[in-house]
């Protein structure tokens, strides 16, 4: 059997986590290619719909990552994101999408090493959890 290669969608904010990813790259650090970064201007613009859509289309995990509390470029976008992720962590497990498949982290612009480490850990966790039910049931 082929090893399980998950698909993980990461919405990362322009000012912190995307910059950290950039730093990881320029520092020649590597992280799992299963994680597909989508750059957004702020975690506060990640509509719960984006997350729901990703899972319904077969994503095995979704990560939202932005600036640490107090560091948001738009003052409070990350606080709004936190409430929305809290909301989704109530709704999605109700339909069997485990809480741990949805992640919210704060990774600052200078945390290139931490970025690579967290991406590796998340990838390992999702591999351990196995494919999501939507991936297994493509025809839905």
């Amino acid at each position: 059997m082929e090893p399980f290669e998950p698909v993980i969608i990461a919405f990362v904010c322009n000012w912190c986590t995307y910059t950290a990813a950039d730093l990881a790259g320029t520092s020649r650090l590597s992280y799992p290619t299963n994680i597909r970064l989508i750059r957004v201007m702020c975690t506060g613009m990640v509509d719960p719909q984006y997350v729901i859509k990703a899972f319904l289309e077969g994503a095995d995990g979704v990560l939202i990552s932005g600036c640490h509390p107090g560091d948001c470029h738009y003052i409070n976008g990350n606080y709004k994101a936190r409430r929305r992720i809290k909301l989704l962590k109530e709704i999605l497990p109700r339909f069997g999408i485990e809480k741990d498949r949805l992640r919210l982290t704060w990774i600052g612009a200078s945390d290139g090493i931490e970025f690579a480490e967290i991406m590796t850990q998340i990838n390992d966790q999702i591999i351990e959890m196995g494919p999501s039910q939507t991936r297994l049931n493509k025809a839905i």
Binding site: P69, G70, N76, Y79, K80, R82, R83, I85, K86, K89, R103, L104, T105, W106, I118, Q121, I122, Q125
Partner: peptide, 12 residues
């Protein structure tokens, strides 16, 4: 929203 709330929503 508040500064300190739902802190275990964050992290891995």
């Amino acid at each position: 929203f508040y500064e300190r709330e739902f802190e275990n929503t964050v992290g891995i």
